[in-house]
Design a protein around this nucleic acid. Sequence first.
DNA 1: AAGGAGTTTTACCAATTGGTCAGAAAGACG
DNA 2: CGTCTTTCTGACCAATTGGTAAAACTCCTT
Lengths: 209, 209
Amino acid sequence: MNASPPAAKKPRTRIQKKNRKTILDAALDVFSQNGFRGSTLDQIARAAGLSKPNLLYYFPSKEAIHVELLSCLMDTWLDPLRALDPAGEPKREILSYVRRKLGMSRDYPRESRLFANEILQGAPRIRKAIRGELKDLVDEKAEVIRGWSARGAIARVNPHHLIFSIWALTQHYADFDVQVRLILEDRESDPFPEAERYLETLFDKLLTP
Amino acid sequence: MNASPPAAKKPRTRIQKKNRKTILDAALDVFSQNGFRGSTLDQIARAAGLSKPNLLYYFPSKEAIHVELLSCLMDTWLDPLRALDPAGEPKREILSYVRRKLGMSRDYPRESRLFANEILQGAPRIRKAIRGELKDLVDEKAEVIRGWSARGAIARVNPHHLIFSIWALTQHYADFDVQVRLILEDRESDPFPEAERYLETLFDKLLTP
DNA sequence: AAGGAGTTTTACCAATTGGTCAGAAAGACG
DNA sequence: CGTCTTTCTGACCAATTGGTAAAACTCCTT
């Protein structure tokens, strides 16, 4: 009797699980390239190999797909920072964070661009998560870094801006990938190895007291 | 007799000059916030205080407005790097460039976001300018930096990635402004002064041999 | 004041958009 | 096999989109 969509909740059947995944993957492709308003359900449907009404059988609306993507993303996105260990060796911890974050740009560029698009447009759909989860985590880890800084384990730096700089430098290689590759066209076919070396020396020098 | 639009060329009358400027400014607002496909002529018209057909009297199409904005932008955008003086004191030159570029993020955030949006979407409309003008200028200045590096005036760094890092770090404060402000909400009402201090020490340490 | 160029508006269009609905097809299961 | 649920489709819709046509208005020049 109840043939209505699963209301974007727990998928029950195998088919639902598979198709929801297909849709989200296709949507990630499309949204990350065109932004929310620039993407159409038809594009997503085509990319997913499904019909448009079929998309809307699995998700109640275009926005619901986008929201689902963003909320899944936020967790993955924070993982590298979460792993920063207050008990570890300070400089090594931060350098590992940089390496992990650069790895995310290399391996999940679509996610990075989706996030960038959302922020660029004023973060209408994830303001809350930024002021909440993200800010809390950042404040917590900034405090850890401040401690390291204060006891002389690393140089004195503004912890919040240190974190911003790690984000900026690593995400740049995902979000501005096209530009980077166009400029390096005749030098490096894959910018990431050189980027890793460069960022390592940069943060090493910055953090050495 | 000829009442057709001025074909996006030199404005002749005062009214044309004024209205074209108004339109471009409104379009910059809208495009920088929503991207090309996410923006509508109605939004731009409303922001400019004109009717939609009136917009299309001054510009032949939505795309023409966007292209005009981008080509105007490219020049302004390259100015800070152009000003990097091969004859100047190396470290001071680079630090000045960083300061100029950060100033652009502070004073022209809309332009920065317009550019970011375009790159994020694969740079369909400025590929040529990137491979041409931009790449040429970057290669030229990278060579200058390489020279400084080689003769020991600054530390050994990959010049291209140095330039990328300056872009990434400075543009971050324009493109991700919302995020930065949300996270610093209870600390800094204006992130830029602290950002300038932070970036100065970062590049100072990086470039000191 | 008249004429014509330059400017603006009203009314409109075809295409695309997100979304709905009734029913057809496909499984699942006894 | 038959029945019930889940999955999918074609036809459709109202709203929005970029863009046009032509008439109307404004303003400068003579």
